[in-house]
Design a protein around this nucleic acid. Structure first.
Length: 260
DNA sequence: TTGCTGCCAGATACAAAGGT
DNA sequence: ACCTTTGTATCTGGCAGCAA
């Protein structure tokens, strides 16, 4: 079993001309411009590295925040290959042995597959097994509930040497691999990626706007409601919604004899 | 900048049991 | 049969933090 620790750099839409609406491509909000990866063997020894810059096809200017963060300029990418070529190269790097994709957070895995689907690449060539190293780091470092930990923070807390710049795909993949070596669980259970993982979360169900409902009564009574009143209104609303006290009219009483 | 996730407390939905 | 109560499960919006 090999572990492919990967990190991606993305580009995204930016409103370069103020006042004009940014055109977003909902199918691909983040376009990959760099793939960095480190291969580790079954004993977590680093055996190979991978680094590939990609020429963007959708967002052909680099978002200023992305440029500042990553140092990647369009000049650097203009001579690069497209995503499909990069993907095929990445697949060769992964090789034919059993492999798990490992990333910091889940975003990189999702974005990788979004790009694969968008560019009609052959999905069957790449492993669907993946794992999130950030969650192991959160557990290992006893991070407070509700706070997720950044890669740089994890590197610092684990006293790992900071030899190179962050926000470079290969460097970040390397750092992630080093963190992985320290925080790995005793038994790793990789998850399997499916296209359902790209679906937005369940559609919101309708729910009672209690504030608005109580606000109506408070408004009409010009005072605050007591706890008992609030409870009564809630119950009455529920009964009304469920037709709890409805009595069928003669016309609607099916069992009654027709008198027409 | 936009997009995503996880957490929390409180709200809501649901099911089962009890009451009339 | 239907309503009420109770307990539990699930969902929600707001927030913080991270990603590029």
């Amino acid at each position: 079993m090999n572990y492919i620790v990967l990190d991606l750099e993305f580009n995204q839409a930016y409103n370069f001309r103020k006042g004009k609406r940014t055109i977003l491509n909902p199918k691909l909000p983040f376009e990959i411009i760099q793939i960095g990866a480190v291969k580790m063997d079954n004993d977590f020894n680093i055996t190979e590295k991978f680094n590939y810059f990609i020429k963007p096809q959708i967002y052909k200017r680099i978002h200023p925040i992305v440029e500042k963060l990553t140092g990647i300029t369009i000049d650097k990418l203009i001579g690069s290959e497209d995503f499909l070529t990069a993907y095929n190269s990445f697949v060769s790097f992964i090789g034919s042995d059993d492999a798990v994709l490992c990333s910091w957070g889940i975003d990189d895995i999702k974005s990788l597959f979004r790009n694969i689907i968008y560019y009609n690449c052959d999905q069957s060539k790449i492993t669907k097994k993946y794992t999130n190293i950030q969650s192991f780091a959160t557990t290992h470092l006893n991070f407070e509930a509700g706070n997720s930990i950044g890669l740089k923070n994890a590197v610092e807390l684990l006293n790992l040497p900071k030899e190179s710049q962050f926000h470079d795909a290969l460097n970040d993949a390397y750092y992630t691999a080093l963190v992985f070596q320290l925080v790995k669980p005793e038994k790793l259970k990789p998850l399997t990626f499916t296209s359902a993982d790209l679906e937005p979360k369940k559609t919101a169900l309708t729910r009672l706007n209690t504030k608005a409902l109580m606000g109506y009564f408070e408004n009409s009574l010009a005072r605050e409601l007591s706890a008992e009143e609030i409870s009564m209104i809630k119950t009455a609303y529920k009964f009304g919604k469920n037709n709890s006290y409805e009595i069928p009219t003669k016309k609607n009483t099916k069992k009654s004899t027709s008198q027409d």
